[in-house]
Design a protein around this nucleic acid. Structure first.
Lengths: 352, 352
DNA sequence: GCGCTGGTTGTTTGCGTAAACATCGATCAG
DNA sequence: CTGATCGATGTTTACGCAAACAACCAGCGC
């Protein structure tokens, strides 16, 4: 899934070896001395099979190690009860928590999840994922894309399959589910301003992330609306280390008393940088994060942050995509999942 | 996947609605005025289709929104090119990193990954997952189970499907891949002893985790071998918060100058507890973690920890399971992935 | 002109399963 | 004793695709 380790095109050439003829119903039927249909009935727990026959069949199944062929089943039923999830990386906490919520909720609805990694975060990579989609055993797709790759050209591709996009701005053409980035950011910035800070610095996420852009925009807008100066923005890559580097610079910035980091991991880096520079959080500088990862309660000090409800995001994704699967036409549109500020110990009024 | 949000049995009753008759090759063939076989050839990029015909077919495909039916394909080819991964939770960093590595490597081999969540971490839950396995479109399984549920009774079930287990002790009966827990632990404890500490305290993971048990055992053994006293062991649940609680107690322990935490997140909690209790790490207490999560470099202070090579674990899983898929029959056995200690700033000689 | 070659397209067939329908035998009411 | 009924089981068929084979048509050398 990471760019280094995978190449979409390096996929093995489709050498179709002679399929290793597995045990089929016919084999079981032969051994048990019954018809294939009876085996099918036993396999599906159909009632009208007499006990002794059932036992014979079960015994034959065991002896042969029979396993029903889900391809044949799916072919008959016309569905896989599986949802594909297209994503680029699992290393961000947000992605992995969203995925977990999706898996949870899908399981609850009787659906499994197939992961479709995007080899490289380029249009080609996304295209490749959509192509592979056709070969995969899925009834619908959820796209978790935190990068600017879903423009009109690319996204017109996956025709004919129910799809939901997480974290994008294509709400007019597609079904989109997202955290309410703007509201969360506004709460974070307002919280710092309400404490009395003259302005708020920002450590943004990478440029190619919609979420990062949305948070940066809203940070800027909130300051501007309040008639406050907008300080220079630092740019990180979501990692704690990038937050640390940004923090070393900010620590030397004279009037910097409040920083809003675009995620908790960068906030962690900030805390370390300030600590090393001898600045005490929150006495000298206040720090707010975004995500509310579980570890945030154990930062030094425990982090004030914007709580994202990943569970809710996952639930909405599954619900909306399954609604499409079941032919209940839905119109495109965005579902925003609300956020809330969790105040812990990393924020305080500015030093006197 | 978490116990609260999912119940394996709540799966929708298998109401088999009339399958939504999707566009098939025959439909495309009819519109394009060719045979189904020609559509198949175009669909698979077979060379011997003349340009004009190809265009007609492609056009018909577009107009009808044709999407090849992977069930039929899989039925013909006898394989799905998909590996199932059975796991209980994604919330542990280890699981999610291992999964990512598996996804990466599987994609590299042209395989997709289907997640099979275990509803509840009981034998029934695992059993349910294995049952669902039969209905799923997978060629093999990788089991990521950090709990004691794979005993003989349960594990005899998934007969006839290639399988690899991560993080278990069933190496004699199954193919197992694991991090070398023992060696990693030994390195951690020896490092602290070599620095001059009189003994090493331990904050263990939950009892139902093999990994946690292995680390605890080895910690104990290493101390015993060195002829040192074995202090009382604290028990956490992998979370930073549980580490914090353990740390509050350890901070009051008189001779406690070195602590080995069974994972980095608990180590994070320890750092906070010591900080709040006025103990300076590493001057007053040394702390070592396990995992080497990326954030560990940004803890205060940066954490000395045992590096686990999740990528390598994932790679071995995929390799070994695919070997079973292709060459049929490999003997069981355990593959141990080596660890290495990464020394950062959370360890030092004991106070004089 | 004839048959041959090679490239393009069509036809037949079967993958494993389960619904629909057919059959068979036993039981039972009249 | 007969025929209706019903439960257990077997037979046929179709799901969508692609391999194997067949058919067809050009162009070519002789």
């Amino acid at each position: 899934m990471t760019a280094e380790s995978t190449s979409g095109t390096s996929r093995q050439p489709a050498v179709r070896r002679a399929p290793a003829r597995r045990v089929s119903m016919a084999d079981v039927a032969r051994l048990a001395g019954v018809s294939a249909q009876t085996v099918s009935r036993v396999s599906n727990g159909h009632p009208s099979v007499v006990g002794s026959t059932r036992e014979q069949v079960l015994d034959a199944m065991r002896r042969l190690g029979y396993r029903p062929n889900s391809a044949a089943r799916a072919l008959k039923y016309g569905e896989f009860r599986t949802i594909g999830v297209i994503l680029f990386t699992l290393s961000s906490v947000g992605n992995s928590r969203t995925l977990e919520a999706i898996v949870d909720h899908a399981a609850h609805e009787g659906y499994a999840i197939t992961l479709i990694p995007v080899a490289v975060p380029t249009q080609d990579g996304v295209l490749g994922a959509f192509t592979r989609l056709g070969e995969l055993a899925v009834d619908a797709v959820i796209v978790i894309m935190e990068v600017h790759l879903l423009d009109a050209a690319t996204m017109t591709l996956p025709l004919g399959i129910p799809a939901v996009i997480v974290d994008s701005n294509g709400g007019d053409r597609y079904t989109v589910v997202d955290t309410d980035q703007a509201d969360g950011t506004r709460q974070a910035v307002r919280h710092l301003l309400d404490l009395g800070h003259r302005t708020v610095w920002h450590v943004a996420g990478p440029e190619d992330s919609y979420a990062a852009e949305r948070r940066a925009e809203t940070w800027r807008a909130t300051l501007t609306e309040a008639g406050l100066p907008v300080p220079a923005m630092a740019r990180g890559d979501w990692s704690a280390d990038s937050g640390y580097r940004a923090g070393l610079a900010l620590a030397d910035e004279p009037g910097c008393t409040a920083v809003f980091a675009a995620n908790d991991q960068m906030a962690l880096g900030l805390l370390r940088a300030f600590h090393e520079k001898g600045k005490v959080v929150p006495r000298d500088v206040s720090v707010v994060g975004f995500d509310d990862i579980t570890d945030a309660t154990s930062f030094i000090p425990p982090l004030t942050t914007v709580h994202q409800d990943f569970t809710e995001v996952g639930r909405h994704c599954v619900e909306r995509v399954l609604r499409q699967v079941h032919h209940r036409r839905t119109k495109p549109g965005t579902t925003l999942v609300p956020t809330r500020l969790v105040v812990r110990s990393s924020t305080a009024p500015p030093p006197a």
